[in-house]
Write a protein that binds this DNA or RNA. Structure first.
Lengths: 341, 341
DNA sequence: GCCCGAGGAGAGAGCGCTCTCGCACGGCAG
DNA sequence: CTGCCGTGCGAGAGCGCTCTCTCCTCGGGC
């Protein structure tokens, strides 16, 4: 039960006075205590305790030029951010890693094109030491903004342009190959694909994996969705109209797979007997809730978030001018077999 | 294309020099420009532009004692945070309101009991001006922490203790009454309830609403879940075992309703013919994806988030010592009729 | 034409911290 | 016993900004 000094929080000065040392020594103790003799360390520690001293972050970062915070920028049209647990999970991984290093997470949600100015100003303002950014479309202005602000930034998902920026991504192409390979191993021959929006690399990479395994496949077997349940349903209807004889579907995420599943059932196709279905993500709350439960390609979403944070922190520690920008990381995927294929 | 001065960003001093005015005048212009004659204002504005000046937030908040940031504290066991779009949506509303006022959002996720120390230190450290906190269990230490830190805090959801803290909550009790009233109007007489965890007021309030309409109901008609799909399924199994003759279920959220739906189907009960089912939340991605689509009680989640932020900002503006802590707000609910009841 | 008041601009103090520098003191070698 | 080096501590400058206080200037009223 520490006393409350309303209005005037104790300063380092006060701590120093109470401990009978100089401000410099008090500062040394607060920041690790190296080079100070034990008895003095104890005295200062005690003074800190008694006064309930907490360093003023503004004063500190004014001189250190470090804020101890990083921005997490989520640029995604309405629909996806709050229907897709993907981001929550990735942010969770990021949060864990950051708070383990006592770094704070400032969340910047981009709601519309006007927001980019705000974000840009915020980054150049030096509120944060670095940034993590998500889910770029090919024409996303974010990389240009973070570069312009001179802000070290790690991206989530491979950016859709040749710039050499550090990123963390799942092995989308390999995962897709595995999904299709599984369907082939079940004896399926008319394998359709419901792709995500093709201005995102996650979609194009998964499509590329599909094509790797089925180079001869009829283009009519591919339909584009938008990573939402509804778009998956729509794409499935299209595919059934175009190629009624299809016997398998690989959807680029679980949400679209669940939409497809509903449409398949409405058309009287049994899953997996008539049509085998594989998703992507292994979003447990979706994949296990469908009937039948979804066979899907699992990516370690939380781990990817953790990796992004780790990469950024490492880059920050070496200084931006250090031996190298952090390099990128591709995380493996695994096929999770449930009942739908 | 502003020139980049690596290492040395321009200061107010530099702007003042370039504009041929004093630092004080430059500051006045940057902060609104009142009391400065137009020609000087223009000169300063131009200098700001040319140098690409952005104020140093640390220096600023060192003297103003305002950070321009608020904390959003999410204390929720793993499972729920990333399976439930609830939070994402509420955070979205908060983010919109905050960024409209140029206030930043610092996200603090509580991963375990050890984190409370970290949070407490962070709040007392003065990193933020105020806080928004979520989803308290009855024994949650958060209110004590924010009070101890002297931090103005608006809660999301009615806290489970008598303290007079400002909060924003949906009309859980009224919504529950409406759900049950609807089931009664359909002629159902054996109406069961799948409650949420009973150490949260959202659950107890919804249960209270159920009891308001059915004061005589057999206690065996109520089972407790945990707001997850799996727990909803489990609760439904229990209820069917205890009261096989039930003809309606009101679940305290959509996730549990979807779990219940699966179990009902597994037991050969048709929905809505044999058993009518109503959920709560109107989580569109769930309620519309079930088969049949879920009748549910809608709460305006994003709006609630926006309101929380508005309440906090207003309180902050008046100063904590102002005429009054912000008062609480209860937002209305509406019944959304789909096919399940 | 003079005085007074209002309003606009500048000087300077400080917000709370870190960090460099210099000084003092103790131990050891010569 | 003296000189030198290493270590521990304190003094003080300064990070970039805001804001008060003072000074100056200009306009209006008598």
């Amino acid at each position: 039960m520490t006393e409350q000094y309303f209005g005037t929080r104790p300063t380092l000065e006060a701590v120093a006075a109470r401990a009978g040392v100089s401000r410099a020594t008090a500062s040394r103790v607060v920041n690790g205590g190296t080079g100070v003799r034990p008895p003095l360390v104890d005295k200062v520690r005690q003074a800190v305790e008694e006064l309930g001293y907490v360093p003023n972050p503004a004063a500190r970062s004014l001189v250190t030029r470090r804020t101890g915070a990083v921005a997490v920028i989520v640029a995604e049209p309405e629909t996806r951010f709050f229907s897709d647990p993907f981001f929550s999970q990735q942010i969770r991984g990021i949060s864990k890693e950051l708070s383990a290093h006592d770094v704070q997470l400032v969340l910047l949600l981009v709601e519309g094109p006007d927001d980019y100015g705000r974000i840009s100003r915020y980054l150049t303002g030096g509120h944060v030491d670095g940034a993590l950014a998500f889910s770029l479309h090919d024409d996303d202005p974010l990389p240009a903004i973070t570069r312009g602000a001179g802000m070290l930034t790690v991206f989530g998902g491979r950016p859709g342009f040749p710039a050499a920026v550090p990123y963390v991504d799942a092995d989308n192409r390999g995962g897709a190959r595995e999904a299709v390979r599984h369907l082939l191993s079940l004896g399926r021959r008319e394998i359709a694909h419901i792709a995500g929006p093709l201005d995102q690399t996650a979609s194009t990479d998964r499509l590329a994996g599909y094509r790797d395994m089925l180079p001869e496949a009829d283009p009519a077997l591919v339909a584009e969705g938008a990573f939402t349940t509804a778009s998956g349903a729509r794409a499935m209807s299209e595919l059934l109209a175009r190629r009624p004889e299809l016997d398998a579907v690989f959807a680029a995420n679980d949400l679209m797979a669940s939409g497809a599943l509903r449409v398949l059932r409405e058309h009287g196709r049994r899953v997996p007997e008539d049509v085998a279905l594989v998703g992507f993500d292994d979003m447990v709350s979706i994949a296990e809730a469908t009937d039948p439960p979804l066979t899907t390609v699992r990516q370690e979403i939380e781990e990817m978030g953790r990796l992004m944070a780790r990469l950024l922190l490492r880059g920050l520690d070496q200084g931006v001018a250090g031996p190298g920008a952090p390099s990128s990381v591709i995380t493996p995927t695994t096929l999770v077999r449930r009942a739908s294929a």
